[in-house]
Simulated assay, not measured.
Amino acid sequence: MSLFWRIFLLNAFVLFAAASLLLLGPVTVSTPVLLTEALILCAGLVVMLIANAALLRFGLAPLQRLTRAMSTTDLLRPGSRPVVAGHGEIAGLIRTFNTMLDRLETERAASSGLALSAQEAERRRIAQELHDEVGQSLTAVLLGLKTAADHAPDALREELHQVQETTRSSLDEIRRIARRLRPGVLEELGLTSALRALSGESTTPDRLTVRHHLDADLPPLGPDEELVLYRVAQESLTNIVRHSGARRAHLSLRREGGALVLLIRDDGHGTGGAAEGAGIRGMRERALLIGAELSVGPGPDGGGTEIRLTAPLRERGE
Rank of each mutant, 00 (worst) to 15 (best):
N98M: 01
L195E: 07
Q162E: 12
L66W: 03
R316G: 15
T31Y: 08
L195W: 08
T73P: 01
Q128H: 10
G92C: 08
P82W: 00
L156Q: 13
L142W: 06
L263F: 00
L253I: 08
L142R: 10
A19T: 14
V296E: 07
G257S: 06
Q234G: 10
T106S: 14
G282V: 03
C42N: 10
P62E: 01
E188Q: 12
L263G: 00
D150A: 15
M100E: 05
E129R: 14
A152I: 11
E315G: 11
R57N: 01
H243D: 14
L9R: 12
R254G: 09
I280K: 08
M48I: 08
T139G: 15
L56R: 01
R124A: 14
E225W: 01
H212T: 11
H250E: 06
L218W: 04
L93D: 01
G302H: 06
N98D: 03
H161W: 07
L75F: 15
A152M: 11
A149T: 08
L55F: 10
D102S: 15
E105H: 13
V134L: 14
L263W: 00
P82V: 00
L181S: 02
V134I: 15
A274W: 03
L49H: 09
L143Y: 10
L114M: 10
V83Y: 00
E201A: 11
T166E: 08
I307V: 15
L262V: 02
P220V: 14
L294Y: 05
R95P: 04
T271V: 09
Y230S: 07
F97D: 07
S30I: 03
R125G: 04
P183H: 01
